[in-house]
Computed example of a mutant assay.
Amino acid sequence: MKVPHKALVALADGEHFVVLRNDGQILDPKLTKVAEPDVEATNFSAGVRHQDHVGQRIGATDLSELAHGAAVAEWLNAKAIAGDFDDLVIIADPKTLGEMRRHYHVELKNRLVAEIDKTLTGEPLERIEKALADA
Score class of each variant (00 low, 15 high):
residue 81 I to W: 00
residue 96 T to V: 09
residue 9 V to P: 10
residue 130 K to M: 10
residue 4 P to I: 02
residue 56 Q to C: 00
residue 30 K to F: 07
residue 46 A to Q: 04
residue 37 P to K: 05
residue 81 I to Q: 14
residue 128 I to G: 05
residue 38 D to T: 14
residue 18 V to Q: 15
residue 113 V to R: 15
residue 55 G to R: 11
residue 109 K to A: 08
residue 5 H to F: 10
residue 47 G to W: 10
residue 131 A to W: 02
residue 6 K to E: 12
residue 111 R to D: 00
residue 77 N to W: 03
residue 16 H to K: 15
residue 41 A to W: 05
residue 64 S to E: 13
residue 122 G to N: 09
residue 54 V to K: 12
residue 11 L to N: 08
residue 121 T to E: 01
residue 71 A to N: 10
residue 134 D to L: 07
residue 102 R to G: 03
residue 72 V to D: 01
residue 6 K to P: 08
residue 30 K to D: 05
residue 95 K to E: 08
residue 115 E to F: 06
residue 14 G to C: 04
residue 32 T to E: 08
residue 121 T to I: 11
residue 127 R to C: 00
residue 77 N to I: 05
residue 50 H to C: 10
residue 103 H to Y: 15
residue 131 A to L: 04
residue 58 I to V: 14
residue 5 H to V: 10
residue 84 D to Y: 04
residue 10 A to E: 06
residue 102 R to K: 13
residue 48 V to L: 13
residue 76 L to T: 03
residue 85 F to C: 06
residue 87 D to Q: 13
residue 14 G to P: 11
residue 121 T to H: 05
residue 49 R to A: 15
residue 57 R to Y: 07
residue 9 V to E: 00
residue 15 E to R: 15
residue 70 A to K: 06
residue 53 H to M: 07
residue 63 L to V: 12
residue 130 K to L: 10
residue 99 E to S: 08
residue 62 D to G: 01
residue 96 T to H: 05
residue 57 R to P: 01
residue 45 S to H: 14
residue 131 A to R: 14
residue 99 E to H: 04
residue 64 S to D: 13
residue 23 D to W: 11
residue 124 P to V: 03
residue 46 A to H: 07
residue 115 E to G: 02
residue 93 D to H: 10
residue 8 L to C: 07
residue 20 L to W: 09
residue 73 A to Y: 05
residue 65 E to T: 12
residue 10 A to F: 09
residue 79 K to A: 12
residue 93 D to C: 03
residue 82 A to M: 10
residue 33 K to S: 09
residue 93 D to N: 11
residue 76 L to H: 08
residue 23 D to Y: 11
residue 20 L to I: 05
residue 70 A to D: 07
residue 108 L to F: 00
residue 26 I to V: 15
residue 81 I to S: 10
residue 97 L to H: 11
residue 39 V to G: 07
residue 98 G to Q: 04
residue 67 A to Q: 06
residue 90 I to Y: 11
residue 74 E to Q: 13
residue 74 E to H: 13
residue 133 A to L: 04
residue 104 Y to R: 08
residue 8 L to G: 06
residue 132 L to V: 05
residue 58 I to W: 14
residue 17 F to T: 06
residue 96 T to A: 03
residue 88 L to A: 01
residue 53 H to N: 12
residue 63 L to Q: 14
residue 97 L to Q: 12
residue 99 E to L: 10
residue 109 K to D: 06
residue 10 A to K: 11
residue 74 E to W: 00
residue 102 R to W: 03
residue 72 V to F: 05
residue 65 E to W: 06
residue 94 P to L: 01
residue 6 K to M: 13
residue 106 V to A: 15
residue 46 A to L: 04
residue 22 N to T: 07
residue 15 E to L: 07
residue 69 G to R: 10
residue 64 S to Q: 13
residue 45 S to F: 13
residue 17 F to A: 00
residue 79 K to P: 06
residue 76 L to C: 02
residue 78 A to R: 14
residue 122 G to C: 02
residue 33 K to E: 13
residue 132 L to F: 03
